[in-house]
């Protein structure tokens, strides 16, 4: 990779992190959602779900909540591209002598950094819900969080390239982000879903991320938690990441 592209990627990520640190409210507000789900939904449902699952429900959904954190913060971070378009800053980037590819990768890595930090904050709550994780497990979970964050950030960029302003924001939330979450196996095992919905689950990259996270969080409960082999999970995430980045870079390259 040429030096100028590297500089561009570096500075795009640095900008995002500076803004992330400055907007203290952002960290709190994005962490609030997973915490509410974990303790209110997870805690509440624990009493209803039959105990023969083998693990407490709150532990079962823990990987799903990490996935949720990553989903929301990655998509939100990438959606900032729409802000950049609306407020003109995007032009500053597009007029610069850097490849569209490095702009997309820079933006995807920005999302990755921000959402991995948030996933880590949630992950470190594991003792509170009675889980025991070793250091190796934590490192693996972190690695999966990183690639999943990258994948979903790239998806967010791809979505953002098709919107010029924020009017369609609720459309993105209601028709893309929320369905992705519910059809990901975060709240229940994928194979419990009816076949039609099962198809959507299978084309959803988040499903594979959460599947891998489940495997790492609850390795000994394989039968209960795992729907796909770990190798497949990781390959799907990697391949879709590349596809999203390449398409987004091509869309950026197109001039009106």
């Amino acid at each position: 990779m040429i030096r100028s592209d590297f500089n561009a990627i570096y500075v795009i990520v640095a900008r995002e992190l500076i803004k992330f640190v400055r907007e203290k409210g952002r960290l709190i507000s994005t962490l609030a959602r997973p915490l509410v789900w974990l303790f209110l939904v997870g805690g509440g449902m624990s009493k209803m779900v039959s105990p023969d699952m083998g693990v407490p429900y709150i532990q079962f959904i823990f990987p799903g909540i990490i996935g949720m954190t990553i989903l929301f913060s990655s998509i939100f971070s990438s959606i900032s591209i729409i802000w950049d378009k609306e407020f003109g800053f995007m032009k500053e980037m597009l007029a610069a002598p850097v490849s569209r590819f490095s702009i997309v990768v820079g933006k995807a890595l920005s999302g990755t950094a921000v959402s991995t930090i948030q996933a880590l904050v949630i992950l470190l709550l594991f003792p509170v819900i009675g889980l025991k994780l070793g250091i190796i497990q934590i490192l693996f979970i972190l690695c999966i969080s990183i690639i999943l964050s990258f994948c979903l950030s790239a998806l967010g960029i791809l979505i953002a390239t098709f919107y010029e302003n924020f009017e369609s924001f609720s459309v993105i939330m209601n028709f893309i982000v929320m369905p992705m979450f519910f059809l990901s196996g975060a709240m229940y095992p994928v194979r419990l879903l009816p076949p039609v919905l099962g198809i959507f689950t299978r084309i959803n990259p988040l499903t594979y991320g959460i599947d891998a996270l489940k495997y790492m969080v609850l390795p000994e409960k394989k039968l209960l938690t795992q729907d796909f082999p770990l190798g497949l999970d990781i390959s799907v995430i990697a391949v879709t990441s590349v596809i999203f980045v390449v398409i987004a870079a091509n869309v950026f390259e197109r001039r009106k």
Partner: peptide, 17 residues
């Protein structure tokens, strides 16, 4: 301009790009 960044940071961003 990026209004959240400082004047210096805006120009620094530019010089990297």
């Amino acid at each position: 301009l990026d209004k959240e960044l400082t004047a210096y940071e805006n120009l620094l961003f530019h010089s990297y790009l």
